[in-house]
Design a protein around this nucleic acid. Structure first.
Lengths: 207, 207
DNA sequence: AGATTGAGAGTGAACGTTCGTTCTCATAAA
DNA sequence: TTTATGAGAACGAACGTTCACTCTCAATCT
């Protein structure tokens, strides 16, 4: 076979990443050996190294893939039914539908970001994107009249992201944790955060 | 004849743990080698192994120490000035006063809990303690009349713990993150969560 | 007092293992 | 034949851990 098959090359990379992801979810980045990934991918180390130059490159590939996957959710958002139905749908998706595998992988990425500068970069860029996306969303919702125009959008977004992180860590650490039970509380405080700051008696019971 | 000095033995263990903690904060559990800890503690590996049987034992020791230190804060709580001043003080303590070193160490413990069953046990026990402590605190505050008796205490506590975790992760990952700017938002939603569930128009502006 | 003793404290080279990576060689398509 | 694809043994470094040994010093003996 003379010509380099770039499609097949790309497929092979995806297969390796998928295999590595399964290993990483099971044992974490550091306890997973290259040999383990090779077995999972049904491939020899020599061959695997033709597709990735190092273990770190695989980890970075996984991080990027994972972040892109999570980010994709935001792209599909539809504000036409109002902000709060959208947020509730996203909360449901984030709290329960996302597989526990992806949640665990996300925690791996977060802790690796504390060590590997490249992962930190990917992670920080992702965070900035999500934050900007949410702020823009809330601004648009304010224009629509879904929320007060003088609401503390930045503060609310920061808090929502923090809650999202916290929920995923709980999901990852406590197998009995039922995140969906928290959705009413979550929606309640979200509505409250986005109320008008001006009036003492803001709009209560916005549902 | 040199008798076994149990006090000195304990001191030595503490010194090793302190040295290990510095290393772990700097490089994380897995990237820290025993040699590194030995250098930091000014001690040979042979001698260090007289005080701890393995690296895992040191990690477990660190986790226990760290959790105990965090738990100590709760023991000093004083409800006599009302629930919300107490909570605000705790938030301030948790969000800003706790050193970034301890925050980073905490994230190490959390991610290690996903791998090491012993750390998971320590971490889960700690979480359960904190949760029970907070629920009891809120029940006592309800008795005092600080909050409504029909408030969703369990839900509020779960959410507060989640927020606390999320804030610490943000602190650990983003050096520019200013957690104290979030305290007003935090207190606001805390008050909101602990309002009465019965009435449509709960007490607003409880400050 | 001075010498002897014995056990705790401490050393650091070395060990066996594991890991990420590379090298050599085979196979099969073009 | 040529070249992409693949296998798998082997390498060298790094790691956690061990082991044989030395040092220190209070207790004991003469």
């Amino acid at each position: 076979m003379a010509r380099a098959n770039v499609q097949r090359q790309s497929d092979r990379r995806d297969e390796i990443l998928a295999a590595a992801q399964r290993c990483f979810v099971r044992s974490g980045f550091h306890k997973t050996s290259m040999h383990e990934i090779c077995v999972e991918a049904g491939m020899s180390p020599g061959n695997l190294y033709r597709y990735f130059p190092s273990k770190e490159a695989i980890i970075a590939g996984i991080a990027e893939r994972d972040r892109a996957e999570v980010a994709q959710e935001f792209a599909q958002a539809d504000l036409s039914h109002g902000l709060f139905p959208l947020l509730e749908g996203m909360a449901h998706h984030h709290f329960t539908e996302r597989s526990i595998e992806q949640v665990k992988l996300c925690t791996e990425v977060m802790s690796e970001a504390r060590r590997d500068p490249e992962i930190a970069r990917i992670s920080a860029a992702f965070d900035a994107d999500v934050r900007k996306w949410l702020v823009d969303l809330f601004r648009a919702a304010a224009e629509r009249g879904d929320i007060a125009k003088d609401a503390d959008i930045e503060g609310a977004v920061d808090m929502l992201i923090i809650i999202a992180d916290g929920v995923w860590w709980r999901r990852a650490l406590d197998p009995h944790f039922k995140a969906d039970a928290l959705i009413p509380v979550f929606m309640d405080i979200t509505r409250h955060m986005l109320r008008s700051r001006a009036a003492g008696a803001g709009q209560e019971r916005t549902s």
